[in-house]
Each structure stands twice: as C-alpha cells, then as structure tokens.
Amino acid sequence: EKTLKIVADSEEEAEALAKELAEKYNLEVTIERNPEEEGKYVITIKIKP
C-alpha cells in the first residue's frame, strides 16, 4: 500500500479534489485539517497494490 498526501488551501478545494480522485480513479481518499499550517487541509490518498 502506498500513501500520497496533498495539501489544499481550503476545505472546498480539498473536497472537490478528493471527490474527483475517488470517483475517477477509485481510490480511498480522506481529508483532515493540517496541524502544521492553519487554514490548510491534507488530502490523503491510499493506493492499494
């Protein structure tokens, strides 16, 4: 299993990107607040072998 993390500037941007990735590529995608940067969100994508 591989994990890729993407940082987005807004929750709306994160949700839109996560939804597109999940639907288009059938990936497991989660969104959470970035504890290191206020106002940023981390999109985590898990790629199963």
Rank of each mutant, 00 (worst) to 15 (best):
E37N: 10
K48P: 14
K5D: 03
L27S: 15
E32G: 05
T44A: 03
S10C: 03
G39Q: 03
P49I: 14
L17P: 00
K19F: 06
K48A: 11
E15Q: 13
E28N: 08
L4Q: 05
K46R: 09
E32T: 13
N34T: 06
E20T: 13
N34R: 07
E12Y: 07
K5P: 03
T30C: 07
P35N: 10
T3G: 06
E28Y: 05
V42M: 07
A18H: 02
Y25K: 02
I6E: 02
E15A: 15
E12W: 11
R33M: 08
L21H: 02
I45L: 04
L21D: 00
K40P: 02
E20I: 14
G39H: 06
L21F: 09
A18G: 04
E28I: 12
E15T: 14
E13G: 03
P35V: 09
I45V: 13
E32V: 08
A16I: 09
L27R: 04
D9M: 07
S10N: 08
L4P: 03
K46E: 06
A8T: 10
P49W: 09
E11Q: 13
K48S: 11
D9G: 12
P35W: 10
P49Q: 13
R33Q: 14
E13F: 06
K48R: 14
V29G: 02
V7L: 12
V42N: 04
K2I: 15
T3K: 09
Y41I: 06
P35C: 07
L27V: 12
K48Y: 14
P35K: 10
N26W: 12
E20L: 12
A18C: 04
E23V: 04
K40W: 06
K2H: 12
R33P: 14
T30N: 06
A18E: 02
K19E: 03
K24Y: 09
K19L: 06
A22Q: 14
N34F: 10
E15C: 11
E15L: 15
E32Y: 04
E20V: 13
I43L: 10
P35S: 11
E36T: 15
N34P: 07
K24E: 03
T30S: 12
R33H: 07
E13I: 08
T3D: 08
P35R: 07
N26H: 11
L21A: 02
I43S: 00
Y41G: 01
E12G: 06
E13P: 00
V7F: 15
T30A: 05
I43G: 00
K5Y: 13
K2Y: 01
N34G: 10
E38S: 05
N26C: 10
Y25C: 13
L4R: 07
A16N: 09
A16W: 09
L4M: 11
E32I: 05
K48G: 14
K2R: 10
E1N: 11
T3M: 12
A14E: 00
K24L: 08
I47G: 05
E38K: 11
P35G: 09
E36I: 11
E12R: 07
K46M: 09
A8W: 02
I43F: 01
D9S: 11
V29P: 03
I47R: 04
T3W: 14
Y25G: 08
E23C: 13
T3S: 09
L17D: 00
V29W: 06
A14Y: 01
R33V: 10
L4A: 05
L21T: 01
N26R: 06
E23F: 06
L21N: 00
R33W: 06
E13D: 06
E12K: 08
K46Y: 07
T3I: 13
A16Y: 10
P35A: 12
K46S: 12
K24F: 08
E11W: 15
K46P: 04
S10R: 02
E32M: 09
T3R: 06
A8L: 15
L21Q: 01
E23M: 09
V42E: 04
T44C: 07
A22I: 13
E37Y: 14
T44H: 08
A22L: 10
E23S: 10
I6N: 01
E36Y: 14
R33S: 08
L4H: 10
V29H: 01
I45Q: 00
I47A: 07
E11I: 14
Y41K: 02
T44P: 00
I47P: 07
E11A: 10
K5N: 07
V29E: 00
Y25L: 06
K48T: 13
E28R: 02
L27E: 06
E20H: 13
R33I: 11
G39Y: 05
E15D: 06
E38R: 03
L27C: 13
D9P: 03
E1Q: 10
A18V: 09
Y41W: 15
T44L: 07
Y25F: 10
A8D: 00
I31L: 04
S10L: 01
P35D: 11
K24G: 03
K19P: 00
I31S: 01
L4S: 05
K19M: 07
A18P: 00
A16C: 10
E12M: 07
G39E: 05
E28M: 13
S10K: 02
P49S: 14
K5G: 03
K19A: 09
K2N: 14
P49G: 13
A16M: 12
I6Y: 14
Y41M: 04
A16Q: 09
K2G: 11
Y41N: 02
V42T: 07
